[in-house]
Design a protein around this nucleic acid. Structure first.
Length: 584
DNA sequence: TCTATATCACCC
DNA sequence: AAACGGGTGATATAGA
């Protein structure tokens, strides 16, 4: 029983205001202790003038719905984080992950799922508006907000009662506490935010539409396919007819406009090249929703446990790592500080090797270059081959490894590596021959999932398998979902050790430190990532790579350097034509 | 004019 | 039937 495992069980809910990019601003708190029936209702001023009013000690547990929000309020108030946290949202996700739900993933949806009801969504919306409004509240409004907050606590108690038989089981409780521990790490991360070059962001925001117009005006002259800033399919169709160009269509009859098609057409009709480049460039910048606070930190909800594999799923519009990679140049450490982007090397390959117990795959991972090792093990390159001597072969075996991880088949792989299908088939065959144990394990995972309708990670993140399950998803689940466990664990270990993680990125973290500490903190992070991998993989350690960015440098992503340079150039032209602008 | 759907681009 | 896993989000077009 959850209730009996702790001497105090606090059900907690904060209401808070959250402006984009800013820290949460707590408005009120309702907390209820299950054993004693003690109830606390505290308003803003009371919260900010006292220490945490309930126990955060190891003999107590705090239970909330979407607990990273509560943990964020603790941090904003300077309160300690509870030793033990259980997040009923995370536990509800475990219970229902993969199912088509008739309800939302919110507290009310979860309650409804178990056959109860709380307040209506309509009442909830009205109260949220009142809270966001801020400012002075009348006595009645205050009471309304507190009542609403309390009704969420009551709903959380109901939900706990419904879920208790499941999450009270000893093994499950351990897993729930581990997930709860992650909500604390997330609060630290969301609180820190990614340092952004605010002046540059401001410039880009101000000038992007005129930069776009410049580009369009320059390029569209020869095509006449844009209407203002929108690309028109029918105008493009006219253009193609005028030029006598045959163009592939989608099954629906629409012109296919994807990158591959455009690339293909550009080979025979090079006059299309500028248009393709323009489309690519125009589609890439959305900055209006990037959530940057007054302190130039990008703070966004990580949406922990959101994906089927348990990954975070932050909004791509709000979170800087969701934007096109060239925009990572906006990431810039504050003076005197540095950043390190630390990612596991070939994480999914390593996980597959460890979990499947395939010794050849382990050897390949341990060699330091799994892709070349695979080519060697398959007998496709000599024993003395290196990255330098057999670059092309390595690329193809790398593509094959990645293809296998996603369940890709020969036609797609062939297209990817631009080789005939028979060649791709041979690569995939070599993978099957070389890593027999892996394939036995992987086929077993799929068969088990289809028969038993359930898969789970080492720490109990569950996928419920529905009838229409895609076997490629099932085979990929152990790699991606255990990778997700690994990242969560690393975030816990690191934030608890005082490392400032500013962003988790699926198989990587971005950390920040004063320049004098950067090297040591990076080494410490890498050590903790090794430990996290060993804890997930039964002792098998994964390597990591680290890229350091020291002030006054900015984050540079080589994939985006051309676009970055182009935009810088246009920006300078723009600035030259608007001489009186004051930069802020 | 608004919404739903399809398609595409981007991330790991 | 398709055959590239997990996602978010913008845009174009069709339909109400």
């Amino acid at each position: 029983m959850v209730l009996n495992a702790f001497s105090q069980v606090w059900i907690v809910d904060f209401e808070f205001r959250a402006a984009p990019g800013e820290l949460p601003d707590p408005v009120c708190l309702v907390a209820y202790e299950v054993h004693s029936g003690k109830r606390l209702l505290l308003w803003e001023d009371e919260l900010k003038s006292q220490p945490c009013p309930f126990s955060t000690e190891p003999d107590s547990v705090v239970i909330a719905y979407y607990a990273s929000a509560e943990m964020g309020c603790h941090l904003a108030l300077g309160w300690p984080l509870p030793a033990n946290v259980i997040d009923l949202y995370a536990e509800f996700r475990v219970e229902t992950n993969g199912m088509m739900l008739p309800v939302s993933n919110g507290l009310l949806g979860a309650l409804e799922f178990y056959g109860h009801n709380g307040i209506t969504a309509l009442e909830k919306d009205a109260m949220r508006e009142l809270i966001l409004r801020g400012g002075e509240y009348s006595v009645m409004e205050r009471k309304g907000i507190l009542d609403y907050c309390e009704s969420d606590v009551v709903a959380t108690i109901k939900l706990l009662t419904a879920m208790q038989p499941v999450i009270g089981e000893p093994q499950r409780l351990q897993h729930a506490l581990l997930r709860g521990r992650y909500t604390k790490a997330v609060a630290h991360i969301e609180n820190a935010g990614v340092p952004i070059d605010g002046a540059l962001l401001g410039q880009l925001r101000r000038h992007w539409s005129s930069l776009q117009n410049r580009l369009i005006a320059r390029v569209d002259e020869g095509y006449r396919v844009y209407d203002g800033r929108t690309f028109k399919l029918d105008r493009f169709a006219d253009y193609l007819q005028r030029q006598g160009i045959a163009w592939p269509r989608l099954p629906t009859g629409r012109l296919a406009l994807d990158d591959d098609t455009f690339d293909e057409q550009c080979k025979s009709h090079p006059q299309l090249r500028p248009l393709k480049e323009l489309r690519k460039a125009l589609g890439q910048l959305r900055l209006s929703d990037l959530a940057v606070g007054a302190d130039n930190r990008n703070r966004a909800l990580m949406s922990m446990f959101r994906s089927k594999t348990g990954r975070n799923q932050p909004s791509n519009a709000k979170f800087v790592f969701g934007l096109s990679s060239w925009l990572r140049g906006l990431i810039k450490p504050a003076p005197g500080h540095g950043l390190a982007y630390v990612d596991w090397s070939q994480q999914e390959f390593g996980i597959a090797a460890a979990l499947s117990g395939d010794m050849k795959m382990r050897d390949a991972y341990l060699s330091g270059d799994p892709y070349l090792a695979f080519a060697r093990q398959a007998g496709a390159v000599p024993a003395g081959a290196t990255k330098a001597t057999h670059a092309a072969e390595r690329e193809q075996f790398k593509a094959c490894v990645l293809a296998v991880q996603y369940g890709m088949q020969e036609e797609s792989l062939a297209r990817r590596i631009q080789q005939p299908p028979v060649y791709a088939r041979e690569l995939l065959k070599m993978h099957r021959r070389t890593y027999r144990q892996f394939w036995e394990w992987s086929d077993g995972v799929r068969d088990y999932a289809l028969a038993k309708r359930r898969l789970w990670t080492v720490f109990g993140w569950v996928l419920h398998v529905e009838d229409k399950a895609n076997s490629r998803s099932l085979c990929n689940f152990p790699m991606q979902a255990n990778g997700s466990e690994m990242l969560r664990l690393a975030c816990c270990l690191a934030t608890e050790a005082g490392i400032r993680i500013v962003a988790p990125v699926h198989d990587a973290v971005l950390i920040e430190a004063p320049l004098a500490e950067l090297a040591a903190r990076t080494a410490q992070m890498q050590e903790l990532m090794r430990r996290a991998s060993a804890m997930v993989l039964g002792g098998f350690e994964l390597r990591s790579d680290a890229k350091l960015i020291e002030a006054p440098d900015r984050y540079c992503d080589e994939r985006g350097s051309i676009m970055w340079d182009l935009v810088q150039e246009l920006l300078q032209q723009e600035a030259a034509t608007v001489p009186h602008e004051r930069e802020t």
